[in-house]
Amino acid sequence: MQRIAADLMIPGRGDPVADAVVLLDGPTISYAGPAAEAPEAPGAETVRTAVVMPGYDADVLTLDHDPLDDITVLADPEQVRGVWQAGRRVKG
């Protein structure tokens, strides 16, 4: 399970949602909406981004440890849990 936390989600239809969450179960979106209404997702990896919207591709890394605490985690492939390039998962 993956959890994408966004400052702003702009859906294909409807109004923009501030402080949004998208939950992914593999390639399937199981929830997309306000963070306050999101179901629990124990153990989900969380990725933080500014904006989620259709057609907005993103390059994202999920890591075992916070690179702000120890930048060397970026140099260790064993610390990388997932990689998305141009909006497609390529590792993890």
Rank of each mutant, 00 (worst) to 15 (best):
G26I: 07
G26R: 02
G26Q: 09
G26P: 15
G26S: 11
G26E: 13
P27K: 15
P27F: 09
T28S: 14
I29N: 08
I29D: 03
S30K: 01
S30I: 11
Y31F: 06
Y31A: 11
A32Y: 10
A32S: 15
A32M: 04
A32I: 04
G33P: 04
G33D: 02
P34K: 05
P34N: 14
P34Y: 08
P34D: 15
A35I: 04
A36E: 13
A36F: 02
A36N: 08
E37H: 08
E37G: 14
E37Q: 12
A38K: 05
A38D: 10
A38F: 01
P39Q: 09
P39T: 07
E40Q: 11
E40L: 01
E40T: 09
E40M: 10
A41F: 04
A41Q: 03
A41N: 11
A41H: 13
P42G: 01
P42Y: 02
G43V: 01
G43S: 06
A44F: 00
A44Y: 08
A44G: 06
A44M: 09
A44D: 03
E45I: 07
E45P: 01
E45R: 06
T46M: 05
T46E: 15
T46K: 07
T46H: 01
V47R: 09
R48K: 11
R48V: 09
R48Q: 11
T49R: 10
T49G: 03
T49I: 10
T49H: 02
T49Q: 12
A50T: 10
A50D: 11
A50G: 14
A50V: 10
V51F: 01
V51S: 05
V51M: 02
V52L: 04
V52D: 05
V52T: 00
M53E: 15
M53A: 10
M53R: 09
P54C: 06
P54V: 07
P54E: 13
G55P: 10
G55R: 13
G55N: 14
Y56N: 13
Y56M: 14
D57L: 12
D57F: 11
D57Y: 12
D57T: 12
A58Y: 02
A58V: 03
D59P: 03
V60I: 15
V60R: 15
V60M: 15
L61P: 00
L61T: 10
L61Y: 14
L61V: 05
L61K: 04
L61F: 07
T62M: 06
T62Y: 01
D64W: 07
D64M: 12
